[in-house]
Computed example of a mutant assay.
Amino acid sequence: MTHNNNNVVSRSNDPEQIDLIDLVLQLWRGKWVIGAFIAVFIMLALAYIMLAKEKWTSTAIISQPDAAQIATYSNALNILYGGAAPSMLDIQTRAIGRFNSAFSALSQALNNQEVPEKLTIEAAVKGQSLPLSVSYVGESAEAAQKQLAQYIQIVDEQTAKELSLDLKDNIKQQITTLNDSLQNQEKVSQEQKDLRMKQIGEALKFAEAAKITTPKIQQTQDVTQETMFLLGSEALNSMIQHEATRPLVFSGAYYQTKQNLLDIQNLNVNPDTIHVYRYVMKPDLPIRRDSPKKGITLILATLLGGIIGSGVVLGRNALRNYQRREI
């Protein structure tokens, strides 16, 4: 009996147990103060939830354009460069690459505004360049979805116009190149004609000097520059008149160049027919806002109010006890 009583006394004199019980009692006695702080912080949290700007994030996933979306541009390149034109896959990859660069530039510009806007583009799958995930943060779910779709369209149209302008510059350059080629071929053909006229003229001089008026050879295919005078002055005069009025003779390469030039001159790619991306997932309508989060905000407000209220109660009691000991 005596042993049990000693154990009870020993436990009751344990300073840690006494402090814990005293702490709980102090908090219980100050429950109204703690409750008041919690109520105040909950009210502040509700005011924050009501007044803070909402943030909603709409997301879309895009990839390289389909062949049909870039067909007019691809066909123009094939006409422009023939066998040296890039493949369809290369064109698709370059198109989405330019879209990515333009979208990133727009994102940076929006972020540097006086009132920043959050527009992001990144790889949808880590370690893979495609597809791309694009997102926009707005003040409402509908606004975020609409604005994201609008920015994607703006970048698409801008990139398509840039591709069209680049194509026009390439067309001008190629037209210049082909015209130069035609002029060179015409010059060579004219020089060949002039040389032919000169050769016939020299042969005519020899024929007149030798007083040969009629042909002295039967097989014309055996005629060379040295034996041409044997055709006679009459035949040579006729040949000179014929050569003078005959149009220039061109090779098949000349007419192929001419055809290529006409095809290129008729190229007219409308930017509206070019699209540099394809939707894997259109901009979604977010169902949960990013902030403010009502549940988490209220929980944090309750915890913060309880902690501060408890601190006030314990601090006030500690101050009173200290003042009593001083007296």
Rank of each mutant, 00 (worst) to 15 (best):
V40I: 14
A244K: 10
K293H: 05
A109L: 12
I287G: 12
S189I: 01
P247A: 08
N111I: 03
P271E: 08
D14F: 09
L110Q: 04
N75G: 05
Q219H: 07
Q69W: 05
L25A: 10
I121E: 05
I154K: 09
L77I: 00
L23Y: 11
Q108I: 02
K31H: 15
N266E: 08
A318G: 09
Q192T: 12
L165E: 15
V24M: 13
Y73K: 10
I152V: 15
A76K: 08
I91W: 07
Q183A: 13
N179C: 04
A144R: 00
L119Q: 02
L165N: 15
G127C: 14
Y151C: 03
V223R: 14
V312F: 13
S291W: 02
Q199E: 13
T120M: 05
A95Q: 06
I296A: 06
A209L: 06
D263A: 12
S189N: 11
L132D: 04
V312D: 01
T302G: 09
D180V: 03
M239Q: 10
A149I: 04
I62K: 05
M1Y: 05
G35Y: 09
H242D: 07
D180S: 11
K282T: 12
T176M: 06
Q323C: 02
Y48E: 00
L23K: 13
Y48I: 00
Y254E: 01
Q150E: 15
I96G: 10
Q147A: 10
D19I: 07
P271Y: 07
M1V: 06
T59M: 05
Q92N: 10
G30H: 10
S12M: 11
S310Q: 01
R11K: 03
T224C: 13
N6I: 06
T57A: 06
L204Q: 00
P131G: 09
A318N: 12
I70Q: 09
P86F: 12
A253C: 05
Y73M: 04
I91C: 11
A160W: 14
D166N: 09
A47D: 02
L163H: 02
L285I: 07
L148K: 06
Q26S: 12
S107W: 06
Q225A: 14
M43S: 14
L304F: 15
L23Q: 10
P15A: 08
I79C: 00
L267D: 02
N184E: 02
N237A: 03
P283S: 05
